[in-house]
Structures are given as structure tokens and as C-alpha cells.
Simulated scan of single mutants.
Amino acid sequence: MFGLSCPTPLLSLTYRHIVDMEQGGGRTVAKGDVRTYYEGGQWKSGVDGGARASHVGGTKAEQSAIGREMARERGVEHRITRMDGAVTQQNSYGNDPESSKG
């Protein structure tokens, strides 16, 4: 866009967010939870129900950081899976039900 390149996916996410804000925002935010998963030989992060991953490549740790930021921005849950698909970590960043007195 401006001829700048970003050395890591996490910096790229931050850069895109800043550019979007400078251009007036207006980006539609998906409602689904975010998950970080391994598919096709690469780590990916995306919104559940989306047609494809939002971010691809890098290490599991890098994609986990990207997925965590995506979930925080959306106020949804973030699930991180192992290579075999089993969920190893799940964090919620909003929309939690109020605890009831029991």
C-alpha cells in the first residue's frame, strides 16, 4: 500500500490496523470466535465460520499472539489447538456471562 514491508506477521497485523484507522476504519468485524490451528503444513489464525484463515505462516507462538489480538479486538473467545486439532488452550476476551450466586 505505502511501499512498506513488515518483517513479522505480528507487526504486519499492527501495521494493517494502523492503516485502517488512518483511513477512517469502517472494517466489518466478524462475530465468530477466533482459533489458531495447524493446517496444510502451516500455522493459521482465523475466525470460526470464515471461508479461509485471516493470517497464515510463522510459528505457533506467532500465530497464537495474532489470534489473541484478533479475539481481544472482537471481544470473543480464542482457541489454540495442537497439530492434531485438539484444543490445548481457550481464553475469553468478552461476552462472559455474569456469575450467578449459587
Rank of each mutant, 00 (worst) to 15 (best):
S92L: 00
I18H: 12
R74C: 06
D20E: 15
D33I: 02
T14E: 14
G24L: 12
E39Q: 09
K101H: 04
E39K: 07
T59S: 15
H55P: 00
R72W: 01
V19P: 05
L10Y: 14
M1V: 12
V76F: 01
A86N: 03
A71N: 06
T14P: 08
R27S: 15
I80A: 12
I18G: 11
G26E: 06
L4E: 13
Y38R: 04
L4G: 07
N91S: 10
H55M: 11
R74P: 08
D48E: 07
R79V: 01
S64D: 11
R27L: 09
G50N: 08
G46Y: 03
M21W: 06
A53F: 04
D20W: 08
G50M: 03
S64Q: 11
R27Q: 15
V56R: 07
I80S: 07
S12I: 02
A86C: 04
V34M: 06
G24A: 14
V34F: 00
K31Y: 07
S45A: 15
A53T: 04
G25S: 12
T36M: 06
D20A: 15
S54G: 12
L11R: 13
T81Q: 09
I18A: 15
E73M: 08
Y15P: 03
K60V: 07
R16M: 13
D33V: 01
G85H: 03
T81R: 08
L11K: 14
P97K: 09
T88R: 05
K31I: 04
P9V: 12
Y93L: 05
V76I: 01
A61L: 11
T59D: 14
G57R: 09
R74F: 00
E73L: 07
E69G: 11
G50D: 12
G94F: 02
A30K: 06
A51C: 01
S100D: 05
V87C: 08
M70Y: 03
Y93S: 07
L11S: 15
Y37M: 04
Q23H: 14
S5I: 03
K101P: 00
G67W: 01
T59N: 13
R72K: 10
A71V: 01
S5C: 06
G67T: 07
L13Q: 14
E69V: 09
M21I: 10
H78A: 11
G50R: 04
